[in-house]
Amino acid sequence: MRLLFIILILLVAGLFVAGLTVGPADTGFTEALAALVNGGDGPLPLVMREIRLPRALLAVMVGAGLGLSGAALQGYLRNPLAEPGLIGVSNAAALGAVVVIHAGLVASGTLALPFAALGGALIGVFLVLALAGAQGGSLTLILAGIAISALAGALTSLVLNLSPNPFAASEIVFWMMGSLADRSIVHVGLLLPFVLVGGAMILSLARGLDALTLGEDAAETMGYSLTRLRLVLVIGVAAIVGGATAVAGAIGFVGLVVPHILRPFVGAQPSRLLWASALGGAVMLQMADILVRVILPERDLKLGVVTAIVGAPLFLHLIVKTRRESGGGLA
């Protein structure tokens, strides 16, 4: 168990350094790091501090947040197919962003888009909680999430449908694919409180999620208020997913695949999976963000596309493995 954490932390740190040294500005490894640490005049310190450092930090924060959220939702719903988008917040955040792009307000300030996405996420989580009710179980939460997700998705399609010109439409489509390119340290500052607060809220639920392994009645009688647990979980996940979507667009599969891969290494314990998935999510998203810069450096490959291309086959492999272990059946 400890070995896993050491390996993951080393991977996060190693990929962070690697991420700082990959980019269109052709620089040497030590040269780039020296420019970052020492600063000074010239283009290289500027590239390092204004472009690559925020990008690397965002990859860690977004990846860790999505991995953590996915692990928490899988634990709460006792379902390995749960993912952060399930509660509808990512689609709601995307809708907020898309409306702003459609209205042509993006140019009015770099932060108009993330704030609109956060607004969308806030409305989304409010509606999900109102629909699911304070006392409801996990089923009502899933249904409310699906309803809000579908509604936000439909409205996003409507906006796309009504887009005034092909440029606006393509801008919307590209934004929805997710990216960490051209983000600034302001975006880091914007996302940080959401990831820290949401992360702390989710991590406070670790023991309750363990108890939920035995079902809702058993967890309730082991001293965990499920009403409170669900409220804290939804708000924590919404903060992280809303914040992550606001700064990076829609990035799928991280919250689904990472907990699934790491579960066997933590004895399937939901509480330990939280930490492991946060680190694993940071690893996966950093790798993907390095890949987009290495594979097609001149074509602006989108991050969400790469996580899906890498994540979907990985997920298929896991399904096949599960089938083999359970003797051919899918259960």
Binding site: R78, G215, M222
Partner: peptide
């Protein structure tokens, strides 16, 4: 309380399952 459903959602080790009771 032991509900009738006997739900065990994840393949956690038996010792860890029993430990949930001690934690409670």
């Amino acid at each position: 309380w032991m509900p009738q459903s006997r739900e065990i959602a994840w393949p956690i080790p038996v010792e860890r399952l029993v430990a949930l009771g001690a934690e409670a």
